[in-house]
């Protein structure tokens, strides 16, 4: 056990700068992909509630497709497949786009169920007092839905952070790939993979505690 730990002490100075840089890449991937996923999710959710049957069908198809196809396949399609059509992204942005599009399908469902849980009378009342449809959405429906949406949205963020490790397989220089590179150059796979495991836990555990706390509080609010 002590021997195992001394390896970390000996190598820490050489590992840490690379690992620290990789943590930022992982966080960047997660952050940008999350923003993209929210934009895509909101558009798809609104599309699924639109009056046009064609738009509804297309958006439903999008959700079904993203629900049925592995994120890794989406990443490979964007990073390796799109260049055949002359569209080239570097690994980081291919990762952001792939993760964002894939997660967008799930977030669309979260948004939709949140928005549909709000009684239509709320919107009608807002329109009746003279708000425009956009204002009614912005000031009445959305804030009400926010409360229902928040806990699952936090869980989606945790999922996304974990899924960002898939970008290693399209050579985005994030935590997993950095660990893999270091492991093959130092021949210490157990040490490095355990280390990134601990780092991922250090990122995800606080988030899941916050998510659970908020979830419990929201439930309290709903019971009142």
């Amino acid at each position: 056990m002590i021997e195992f730990l001394t390896v970390y002490a000996e190598n820490w100075a050489s590992w840490w700068p690379q690992i620290r840089a990789a943590i930022w890449v992982t966080l960047g991937l997660t952050g940008f992909a999350y923003v993209l996923a929210m934009v895509v999710g909101m558009l798809i959710a609104l599309g699924r509630m639109s009056r046009s049957a064609l738009l509804r069908g297309l958006c439903k198809g999008y959700v079904e497709f993203m629900r049925g196809v592995p994120t890794l396949v989406i990443l490979f399609l964007i990073y390796f497949g799109l260049p055949s059509f002359g569209i080239v992204f570097d690994a980081f942005w291919a990762g952001v786009i792939g993760l964002g599009l894939s997660m967008g399908g799930y977030i669309a469902e979260v948004f939709r169920s949140g928005l549909q849980a709000i009684h239509y009378g709320q919107r009608e009342a807002a329109l009746a007092v003279g708000m425009t449809p956009v204002q009614a959405f912005r000031y009445v429906t959305l804030p009400l839905a926010f409360r229902i949406i928040l806990p699952p949205m936090l869980n989606m963020l945790i999922l996304l952070l974990k899924d960002s490790s898939l970008a290693a397989l399209i050579t985005a220089p994030e935590l997993m790939l950095t660990a893999k590179d270091l492991a093959s150059s130092t021949f210490l796979p157990m040490h490095l993979y355990l280390l990134v495991g601990v780092l991922y836990l250090a990122l995800t555990l606080p988030m899941s505690f916050v998510a659970r706390h908020i979830e419990a509080r929201m439930r309290l609010g709903a019971a009142r």
């Binding site: 899924d163 660990a179 495991g197």
Partner: peptide, 16 residues
């Protein structure tokens, strides 16, 4: 629940 699947697989396959 906090670990990426890829990390678990790498620990089990390469680490072990």
């Amino acid at each position: 629940r906090g670990l990426p699947a890829l990390a678990v697989l790498f620990i089990l396959y390469f680490g072990l």
